[in-house]
């Protein structure tokens, strides 16, 4: 069997997926295709295709998109809300098998307030929190957001990003630029 026939057949059969990583609302499996909202709501692809691309989640590098000014989301509704930003990295997983985690407060406080995590999820003291990958995978701790809304837990080395002294370096990040026409993992 000539290989090109197999490749052509695979491409043909998978053609619907090649249209892009974002489903149309009417085909996304959760919107009712007969809902009058379908032609009025913004399509994900129309908004997200203009932002810095990623290979997982919403296929958008949300932090980079914010820092580049591609988006400018409001930080408060009420004028008296104090907007708290904090720039300090915390090193985590100092003794585990994986590379260490450099947790950046800065990127997190761009989106979140201190009280979103402290102290009901994490005590505000380095070394005071016993973190568990199983808990995270189960939607606790970091997993309250990562794996649900922020980048998913398939992206191990985005968090495990710092080699231990004498340890193996973290795997280099995968390229984030998605070539035109490529089919990123859904």
């Amino acid at each position: 069997m000539p290989t090109w026939i197999i490749v052509a057949a695979l491409l043909l059969v998978n053609a619907p997926v090649l249209a892009g990583p974002w489903d149309k609302l009417r085909e996304d499996g959760v919107h009712d295709p007969r809902s009058p909202a379908i032609n009025r709501l913004q399509e994900p692809g129309d908004a997200l295709s203009k932002l810095t691309p990623d290979s997982a989640g919403n296929m958008v590098r949300w932090v980079q998109s914010l820092e580049k000014g591609e988006i400018n989301p409001r930080a408060n509704l009420r004028p008296d809300t104090k907007i708290r930003l904090y720039d300090s990295d915390v090193m985590l997983n100092l003794n585990g098998g994986m590379p260490m985690v450099k947790f950046p407060h800065r990127q997190h406080t761009l989106w979140l307030d201190c009280a979103n995590c402290h102290d009901h999820l994490f005590k505000a003291e380095a070394g005071a929190n016993k973190l568990s990958m199983l808990a995270i995978l189960n939607g606790e701790q970091c997993g309250v957001c990562h794996g649900a809304v922020s980048f998913p837990l398939t992206e191990c080395f985005r968090c495990h990003n710092t080699a231990k002294p004498g340890g193996k370096p973290p795997r280099p990040s995968l390229p984030i630029a998605i070539p035109a026409g490529a089919v990123p993992p859904k």
């Binding site: 913004q42 919403n58 988006i71 989301p73 409001r74 408060n76 989106w111 979103n116």
Partner: peptide
Amino acid sequence: IFPHWFHRIRFRCKVCHQEL
């Protein structure tokens, strides 16, 4: 249906998850 993607283009998480 609440789409997080649509809302986070316009508002940071803290607006809904802290103020509201």
